[in-house]
Design a protein around this nucleic acid. Structure first.
Lengths: 163, 163
DNA sequence: CACAGTAACTATGATAATCATAGTGACAAG
DNA sequence: CTTGTCACTATGATTATCATAGTTACTGTG
């Protein structure tokens, strides 16, 4: 790709995330990290990405503070990659991607009846399903149920672009 | 880019979503559509993407059933793009991206105190904040609070790759 | 001690996507 | 009949990605 416009200075939070997450390789690597794969080779094999891409993206994720490179043995030097708190907090995004795909990306019967990935809340035992719920009343949330209010800075930025 | 490996036949739901969502331009266009921008020019200007890219991605989104092209006047022919139900259901993903960015992507004070984007649940008036909550008990969910169980098909697929 | 094996990469060249810029077609307004 | 708007398409330079092969630094086997 050519030099793309930088999104890290936009006031839009989706834009800021998109800078990092709007990349197939990043998403697949994060998925594997959440799945417990920490080694370079394991990630490269499971994602099907070439080692050069995996290397580049892990460096990017490290520079963004999303993963940490950690030596798990000295001789020979071997490293593994671990999600930082900032990285672990991306779970919500992958979780939402999973939810959407479960609802829309499979043919009937393709998964053998159930979801491709089931999640149980350890604390209460609930199968969390795929819905997004309101922290106030517990109802399912969709686009249209929420009223969005951009901050003054974000509003100004958008107005500047269209003017 | 070269011909990338196709992810649409993996059993992993994150992989299936990543095929579409692992793209900066797609994410930015979706953001604008959720924001109410429906016109080609408005999207191109606000995202900063070139018309060629916007055109290509809108065609892709249309072919995936995420947006619909709709004529809003006849003479001259003018079109707008609307999210389908499948498209509107992607809201959860952008919502999660926003949540993460609000928590991690801004310097202190950069937003002037509040979040860059505030969401209120119309039905109950709650400011939903940025957390992901359990539909069973209402507690905040993070990575580690959930126990994931892949379906047999997904497990088999991953085993095949590493074997 | 030679040789295969493993982990974590780096190097190379072909291919393809992206960007910036300019241009097109259809019409409306002045 | 020139300018303006909207929704694009065309062109060429730049750069990212892929597939494949190679490198470094060891360990374990015979």
């Amino acid at each position: 790709m050519p030099k793309r416009a930088d999104l890290s200075d936009t006031f839009c939070p989706v834009g800021r995330s998109a800078e990092l997450l709007g990349d197939r390789a990043v998403l697949l690597i994060l998925r594997d990290l959440f799945f417990g794969r920490r080694r370079f080779e394991a990630i490269a094999v499971n994602t099907g990405l070439g080692p050069q891409l995996v290397s580049a993206r892990l460096k990017l994720l490290e520079s963004e503070g999303v993963v940490e490179r950690h030596a798990y043995q000295e001789r020979p030097q071997r490293h593994e990659y671990r999600l930082t708190d900032k990285g672990k907090d991306l779970f919500g995004v992958l979780y939402a991607m999973r939810g959407w795909a479960e609802r829309w990306a499979y043919e009937d019967g393709e998964t053998g009846g159930g979801p491709a990935m089931r999640y149980i809340h350890r604390a209460c035992g609930t199968d969390v399903g795929t819905a997004l719920v309101c922290p106030g009343c517990g109802a399912a949330l969709g686009y249209g149920d929420l009223k969005g209010e951009p901050s003054p800075a974000l509003k100004a930025e958008q107005a500047a672009r269209s003017g």
